[in-house]
């Protein structure tokens, strides 16, 4: 195995080999690099900045002309309106937020368990044709889900599971199988075969080796898959809009937000910004604390790492 890809990216580099004085051109380039990095930083942060400051300006008096201006005085009223609604702003996102959390956690956990078992077999118990089957799995990761959506909606309607949030749990588990399998397989590939062989010499069964050798080593991979599935299910719009239709009873974070901001409700910009921010917070918090694991999931999507 070559070096781990995430380690490559995040490794601390020797910023300067020796403590020597920089020459004139070197200093120029260093300053140029910093100015460019800071300039890009401003561009990257700008949309979040707009969200945050405009969520603190209250419900009314939020105008596009002042979009980049800091609030004159802090006013948190938009937060309570976006969260629980009022008479002039009937939609709220609290219900859909808790509904999303409920379904996302379940689908992430089940996906991780399935992925772990599959990855173990594809990495360590290869059978005839397993590489081919694995490639078939991978293709499922890249398809546009529109290509399966109409039959899927038909199945869900016939079985009448489209009236429950579990339709999304199932969809994310099923279509998460490829990527979860891939992440675990890559992780288990890196575990030395000698460990498995040692278990085999002791006449341990496949399940036994999994339980006592592989599983205890799997925590990092579980974290990667859990937060990957959490983030992608949380941010998913396509499955949600097709499978739950426009039903407000089953609205999840993204569909509810799209309904609020996409409707004629273009007056309450402050509330719109706040609602967007609230919907972004869970995944943002996960990213802040577990960014490294998120990066690994992201890179798995490119079949690297």
């Amino acid at each position: 195995m070559s070096k781990d890809i995430v380690d490559l990216i995040t490794a601390k580099h020797n910023v300067r080999n020796k403590k020597r004085k920089l020459t004139g051109t070197e200093r120029f380039w260093l300053i140029f690099r910093y100015i460019s990095l800071i300039f890009i930083w401003f561009l990257v942060v700008m949309p979040i900045y707009v969200m945050v400051i405009n969520s603190l300006k209250g419900v009314k008096n939020v105008y596009l002309v002042n979009a980049f201006k800091l609030p004159e005085k802090l006013d948190f009223s938009a937060w309570s309106v976006a969260w629980s609604g009022t008479d002039y702003f009937p939609q709220s996102i609290s219900d859909s937020m808790s509904r999303t959390l409920f379904f996302v956690i379940q689908s992430a956990i089940i996906s991780a368990i399935i992925g772990s078992i599959n990855g173990y077999v594809f990495a360590k118990w290869k059978f005839k044709g397993s590489n081919f089957i694995f490639t078939l799995f991978l293709f499922g990761m890249f398809i546009p889900y529109q290509a399966i959506m109409i039959p899927l909606v038909r199945i869900a309607t016939t079985l009448e599971i489209n009236k429950s949030i579990y339709v999304l749990v199932l969809a994310h588990i099923i279509y998460g199988i490829p990527i979860c399998t891939l992440i675990f397989r890559n992780y288990y590939e890196a575990i030395p075969n000698e460990l498995i062989e040692a278990g085999r010499v002791d006449k341990a069964s496949m399940v036994r080796i999994y339980r006592s050798i592989i599983l205890p080593l799997s925590i990092p991979a579980f974290v990667v898959v859990l937060i990957w599935q959490f983030t992608s299910a949380w941010n998913d719009f396509l499955f949600a809009i097709f499978l739950t239709g426009g039903s407000p009873k089953l609205a999840v974070a993204t569909t509810a937000l799209n309904f609020i901001t996409g409707s004629t409700n273009q007056v309450y910009y402050g509330v719109n910004m706040t609602a967007s921010l609230i919907v972004s917070l869970p995944t943002l918090i996960v990213y802040i604390f577990l960014g490294r694991y998120f990066l690994r999931g992201l890179l798995s999507g490119s079949l690297k790492g």
């Binding site: 969200m51 998913d236 967007s276 998120f294």
Partner: peptide, 11 residues
């Protein structure tokens, strides 16, 4: 990459 297109779309 961690934020949904829908939320960013609003902004």
């Amino acid at each position: 990459m961690a934020i949904s297109f829908i939320a960013m779309g609003t902004v």
